[in-house]
Amino acid sequence: MNVDLINSADVIGMFCRLHMNSKRDFSIRPSEMGVLIYAQKQSCAVTPLMISQFFNISKPSVSLMVKSLTKQGFLIKESSITDKRSYTLVITEKGENLVESSFIEYFKAVKLLKEKMGVDKFGQLVDLMKIANCILEEENTGSEALDYFQVADVLSKLNNRKITYVKPGLLKYRNYYIKNRGLDKGYVNVTVMLYIMTRLGTAKTITNEFFKLTGKNPRTFEDFAKANIGAFMKGNDN
């Protein structure tokens, strides 16, 4: 057991909890305030996809926030001239006023850190967090966008046997993992939603931020699979 890793995880977890639980006196949710601030500072038209990609959240989550903000009069939707199904978001005067009046409250935890740590240490913290974000992003998304069929081809090559992605129906998949594999229903429901979003192409975005910050190229899925080949060998179905 690596005590240093455990202690480090505790420290990072505590920081995240303290930041997330810091009291903010808003008339709307902090996540919705984040969307308003994002919409206000953009110089171009804002779309739900832009919000989804910037905050790394699903489109359904964005839709719920947009619905709430438009209902309260903080945002308005402007339909696309060429595609009536698409729309852009514009912050209203009411939204502008809320952002201006709540700006200090929204960033007070960050402001407190900067004041207490000092400019130099705070700057170092931000720089290190940028690097950490890129490393985790690269670990989760890799350097390429592959579909399930391409992943199966890579695993076939590394295992020297044919692995086929059969694209199961969502209900069939759900029933199998709950009834046959005995997995928790809540966990399976989450994976179903993840697979739906992946099939819709929401995980296909690739950026060069990792390289710009670290000077290193992100590894490919094949490299990742080689490093963890034991998890993909026949007979290992965990």
Rank of each mutant, 00 (worst) to 15 (best):
V46R: 13
D120R: 10
T202P: 03
F26Q: 00
Q40Y: 12
E209W: 05
I12K: 07
M20C: 08
K59R: 14
R85D: 15
G215C: 06
V154N: 09
D25F: 13
K71G: 12
Y87A: 12
R17E: 15
I76W: 07
I229R: 06
V166H: 13
R199T: 06
T47S: 06
G13P: 00
L98R: 08
M233Y: 10
Y173L: 14
K84S: 12
V3T: 06
I81Y: 14
Q150E: 14
M50R: 10
I37W: 08
D147P: 09
I206D: 03
F15V: 13
I6S: 09
G34N: 08
R199A: 10
K212V: 13
Y173C: 11
L75W: 05
F74N: 01
F221L: 05
V90A: 14
E139W: 10
G142I: 01
L146K: 03
I37P: 09
K130T: 02
L146Y: 03
L112C: 11
P168Y: 12
D120E: 10
L64C: 09
T88L: 10
I131M: 06
Q72V: 00
I37Q: 13
N7C: 03
A109Y: 10
Y173I: 12
E32V: 05
F26S: 03
K121Y: 11
Y177R: 07
R161E: 15
Q42S: 12
F211P: 05
Q72N: 08
N21I: 11
E209N: 07
G95T: 01
E93Y: 05
M197Q: 14
N228R: 02
Y177W: 11
I51S: 04
L158R: 13
I91F: 07
K71H: 12
Y195R: 12
R181W: 02
C16A: 14
V62N: 04
T214K: 08
I28F: 07
F211I: 01
G182S: 04
K67I: 06
T198W: 05
K108L: 00
S31L: 13
Y187D: 08
G201D: 01
V66A: 01
E222Q: 05
M197P: 09
L171N: 12
P60Y: 01
N189P: 04
T198N: 13
Y148F: 15
T220W: 07
C44Y: 14
S86R: 14
N133V: 02
L18K: 10
E144Y: 06
A45P: 06
L128C: 09
N56S: 04
V190Y: 15
A152P: 05
L128I: 11
P168H: 10
E100S: 10
K108V: 07
M193A: 11
F107L: 02
L125A: 03
C16K: 15
V190D: 12
